[in-house]
Write a protein that binds this DNA or RNA. Sequence first.
DNA 1: TAGATTGTTAATCGATTAACAATC
DNA 2: TAGATTGTTAATCGATTAACAATC
Lengths: 208, 208
Amino acid sequence: MSGQNISKSTLQRLPLYLNHLKSLPENTSGNISATAIAEAIKLNDVQVRKDLASVSKSGKPKVGYNTKELIKELEVFLGYENNNNAIIVGAGKLGMALMGYIGFKEYGLNILMAFDTDKNVVNEQELVMPIEKLPEICRRMRIKIGIITVPASFAQEVCNLLVESGVLAIWNFAPVHLNVPDGILVQNENMAASLAVLSNHLSEKMNN
Amino acid sequence: MSGQNISKSTLQRLPLYLNHLKSLPENTSGNISATAIAEAIKLNDVQVRKDLASVSKSGKPKVGYNTKELIKELEVFLGYENNNNAIIVGAGKLGMALMGYIGFKEYGLNILMAFDTDKNVVNEQELVMPIEKLPEICRRMRIKIGIITVPASFAQEVCNLLVESGVLAIWNFAPVHLNVPDGILVQNENMAASLAVLSNHLSEKMNN
DNA sequence: TAGATTGTTAATCGATTAACAATC
DNA sequence: TAGATTGTTAATCGATTAACAATC
């Protein structure tokens, strides 16, 4: 029912709108226009209007959107009121950091535990489990989101294991392409790609 | 000289190519074609060929690229052999995790220290400095890269401070748009956007 | 009524992909 | 020479933006 036929680029802008709305002082009139949002976050107003139209039917000509209502609609649409359980594979620095990061709770993501092959990092008290237990735990707890923070060379293997264990969406921090069957989503968080952009900008700047 | 006129999308794919090349066994013929790379990472072959053409002149018809040479060219282009010093603003969980993450070294990124406004987290022995020292340190050490991991509501303010302190490229982990003067690059690493994509996929799956 | 705003249809733009010519 | 591959020019596609009609 929710979230059909919405482009990935639209989807990725929605949190920006939500964040902006939440940052507004409570006292303001109660309504806000797509134009005002666009102005604030430096996007095209038609784009914002189109994006919002795919989430809400409550926009009114001359009036705009009721701010609180729109916030609510965005939160529901983005699933911030759900509690999506997830697990992490790869209990290195990055993996443990993500597991410890409380900020994801706000977005409805609940990271339950991590898995690793390395016996030295496994520590069941601290919720770092041996990888062998992954399939059974994922099935039993109906985990649908897997986060991959292993080195690139192991990522595909881990991905396969997650898919076999019933995971439907994968958040991939390894800088590699993952092959998955139809119906499984891979969202890449490629920090190497970001660094490429930063580094390229600097080398352009420096050589002028 | 390096890195002119190259699209952001191309730039972001380059690390994937490099990673794939490095993953190949040493013993293979020594040459590789754009077609083979494209096949391996499931991209269009023309796209790979175009991307590589913007980095290397060493491709030869019928032969392809010399693997080692291409690896070298990509590494140089991506600045992996440089040592770009960077600082982090926001010494919370995420900030400290990024600071502790050794993986960035490989990409030529060297995170020297973190800054925070909170006196309780400041700890100069552990390289967490009070924000007041940021401008002077950045100028003195000629820091060109700033990483923002503060809450969304402080991000613009921190961004301004970084720009005033001579930073030229900003890696922004806060889910907000940042306004910067011409010539300053902002690269957004918007995890909320990624989570939106994951969550939307799950809600589609669940409602079928 | 006039103005502000929504939502839609059409035009533009950039990136991807296809077709093809050049070459070791 | 024939085949594989590069690199380029043209076609396609999707997303963004502009123009405009509808409406509180």
